[in-house]
């Protein structure tokens, strides 16, 4: 491939190249985790189904709606920021971050219910993966909220594009994680 064509391909990519490296790396990490989850499930599908019945599927579904709506807010912030509408962009960012907090609140209620029922990481391999994967994802939501706050303060179009891309990655991971952990049985 010629250098010019290579440059053209990279130039076509929206946003910062390093953010895409991060997005693909995170997809690989979570992808490996979800594949491992389903691979371990092969040895005990009935046990995994029983364990899954302790999850709140409605809460998971609600959180999906919350996160995709939050993603819309972030995408609109990016669009408005690129058009120089800084105040509007900040409002969308605040909306995205607020919905991120709602996601974490629902997740905290879920964890509280499990822990009060005596369900921990050692209860069953299902819950080891559940806490590991959803906990790691929740950590990304926290990081994403911090990043949204940061780009609201330093709101250059480039920062907005890069920061909101991180948020969409969090969204993307959840739409793959939720059905595998909560619904497949």
């Amino acid at each position: 491939m010629s250098e010019a064509k290579e440059q053209g391909l990279l130039a076509e990519l929206p946003g910062d190249l390093m953010m895409w490296v991060l997005i693909i790396s995170e997809l690989l990490v979570f992808g490996a985790g979800l594949a491992a989850f389903l691979a371990v499930r092969i040895s005990d599908p009935a046990g995994f189904a029983d364990a899954q019945d302790h999850l709140d599927r409605a809460a998971g579904g609600l959180n999906t709606a919350v996160l995709v709506t939050s993603g819309l807010c972030a995408a609109l912030a990016n669009r408005d920021g690129a058009q120089g509408q800084r105040k509007q962009a900040r409002l969308w960012l605040a909306g995205a971050a607020a919905l991120g907090l709602v996601f974490l609140w629902v997740k905290a209620i879920e964890y509280g219910d499990k822990l009060s029922a005596g369900i921990g990481t050692e209860t069953h391999p299902f819950f080891t993966f559940y806490y590991l994967l959803t906990g790691f994802h929740a950590a990304h939501v926290v990081a994403g909220i911090v990043i949204l706050g940061f780009i609201a303060c330093y709101d250059s179009p480039r920062n907005l594009e890069t920061g909101t891309a991180f948020w969409h990655m969090v969204d993307l991971i959840w739409v793959l994680l939720f059905p595998v952990i909560y619904l497949l049985r």
Partner: peptide, 11 residues
């Protein structure tokens, strides 16, 4: 999400 939120429809 890839196409619209992350803007890959343009790439």
């Amino acid at each position: 999400i890839l196409a619209r939120y992350l803007g890959l429809a343009e790439a």
